[in-house]
Design a binder for these strands. Structure first.
Lengths: 334, 334
DNA sequence: TTGTACGCGTTATCAA
DNA sequence: TTGATAACGCGTACAA
């Protein structure tokens, strides 16, 4: 049983309030009494009870981090950076794995209402966000969205512009002289983000006055097998693709196996650009040209915005858009 | 500003304690009053303030999860399962990334003292554990270790028997008729775990009366490059290795590239067994024979043991050892 | 069945 | 510079 303010007060022979002031470095404590108090506090390794502190000050210094899943997706870098910034500013992170489950998301958002957390970061996810809106409407404004769009109401948001990333990739292939760019996307998984990528692809074509051909787009799930099959499908259509832009790592893995299996070479026969700086993308041979998302920055920004929101009632809500970049590898040019 | 017990009490015209009893389903409340109370509570969406609850009941229903890092290593499955079980039992998880930093580990362990958490799971990590011992000695017994050994004092621990895993791998190769098994280990990174694997390797040799040759063991860091180099090194020693057991995924990746680059085939020329069911290991061609660790089980067990420890003062401390299994792929036999 | 009163550990206000 | 006191929101032993 840890020592409390009251204990120290008794030992030194002063009032609890005096001890509190001394420990918190607040003015209004005599030099000698202060010294005595700090001495005893140190001796008995006093640690203020955060629960009581929270109750009195109406704050917990804990943030909720809602995320659809940890092992799948490349969120771990985001999570690490959010935790890093939060810890620096004296905040703890409660990990909330929603598994894209509406009930769980609801339950975790309740942490705000239960006064268990001071704010929440909501990462990705694809569920209807009516209950997010409800939560905000109930007066919990300390919410930041990352890679998730809420249309009903203005919530501070960090967005990584997937459409722009796809544009970069497509434009790069176009500039290399390719016109029939096969697009393989995991649209069946991540509807919003993937549709953004398709937008970027189309825009790049349009801006370069290349006719858009629906046959060149394959919407599938994000699996390796799907990537493998995609190649077979695409080489059997009228207009042969001369290059590929693939929007997920496993898809790319499958595609590349399929290309190699067909006896073709990368980039000589088929240049390939992929999306995301994931582990898989980073180890595929040849080293892939890929769209790199500023995940660390997004994570840090999310934490900063949220903490700012908590501490400053005047903080203005806004949507910040981060741009991906293109990392040139050996899969597009020789 | 959320509604409180007091508010409801006023609205219904009863005492706070009555409301408390009604909400918590405790006996001693008239049917009608109870109904009235629950009605109002629902209407105004009453959620008990967990801070106040915690202060009154001396518990937070929050657990600390100390982990050396998220993106590197394959802890995400462990983390997910711990969170899963915890959530089921009504516990929240505070994510504590120690980055193998003594100061941070200390700071996070303080959460116990601050009464911010009811218990802690400590995952891996390689720092001296004097402060863990100190924490326990201060009366915080609700600590569970996972894949980390504390020798000074008995702490409930979940261990995945890496030595046994290595034994399985080595024995399998031996049974296939191989004797000069090259061992490539990331001993420079993860000293304790890797030395366990070396133990298992040696034991398997001994049990099968195969002479142990020090030259066949390479201790390096866990990088892809190291794996690549390892092959070159090993084929240039007196006793040519006839097969490989590699203890980390990136190492294996490098080794396999090196083998293929040399014009050799797997498994025809060199059978390969790897350790861990990681993403990389699961996508390498040919599909690898590998040691699979029961990570989900370890995670669930850790959460269960900890929660049990919290709720039952009689809970006995013990060390549970989980055994890995061998998953036969196509990299060892044709 | 219901209400009173106190405790949990801290902060903050006001008076001394 | 200090201390007494209330307050934060809830749980609970005891009395009514």
């Amino acid at each position: 049983m840890p020592i409390t303010l009251k204990d120290i007060a008794k030992m030194v022979g002063v009032a609890e309030s005096t001890v509190s002031r001394a420990i918190n470095g607040k003015p209004g404590v005599g030099k000698e009494t202060k010294q005595k108090i700090l001495e005893i506090a140190k001796k008995y390794d006093f640690q203020p009870n955060k629960l009581a502190q929270g109750l009195a000050k109406q704050e917990t210094h804990i943030l909720a981090l809602l995320i659809p899943g940890l092992s799948k997706g490349n969120y771990s870098s985001l999570v690490e950076n959010i935790e890093y910034i939060a810890e620096k500013d004296g905040y703890q992170i409660i990990l909330c794995n929603t598994q894209n489950d509406l009930k769980k998301e609801k339950k975790y958002l309740n942490l705000l209402q239960e006064k268990r957390v001071d704010g929440a970061v909501i990462l990705g996810g694809e569920i209807a966000d009516q209950h997010i809106v409800n939560t905000v409407l109930r007066g919990h404004k300390n919410i930041v969205l990352v890679n998730r769009l809420c249309e009903e109401i203005l919530i501070p948001t960090i967005l990584i512009d997937a459409s722009y990333g796809a544009y970069l990739a497509t434009e790069y292939l176009i500039n290399l002289g390719f016109e029939n760019i096969g697009l393989i996307t995991a649209a069946k998984n991540d509807e919003y983000i993937e549709s953004e990528k398709i937008k970027g692809y189309k825009k790049a074509l349009k801006d370069n006055m290349i006719e858009y051909n629906n046959e060149l787009i394959i919407k599938t799930d994000g699996s390796r097998e799907a990537g493998y099959l995609a190649f077979t499908q695409l080489v059997n259509i009228d207009i042969n693709p001369d290059s590929f832009f693939v929007t997920s790592d496993l898809l790319t893995l499958g595609l590349i196996e399929s290309i190699k299996m067909g006896g073709f070479f990368i980039p000589q026969d088929y240049p390939v650009v992929t999306y995301g700086d994931t582990l898989i993308n980073s180890i595929i041979e040849p080293e892939l040209t890929r769209v790199v998302e500023p995940l660390e920055k997004a994570g840090k920004l999310a934490a900063e915005v949220l903490i700012n929101l908590i501490n400053d009632d005047q903080a203005k809500e806004e949507i910040k858009v981060l741009k991906p970049t293109l990392k040139i590898g050996k899969s597009t040019k020789y």
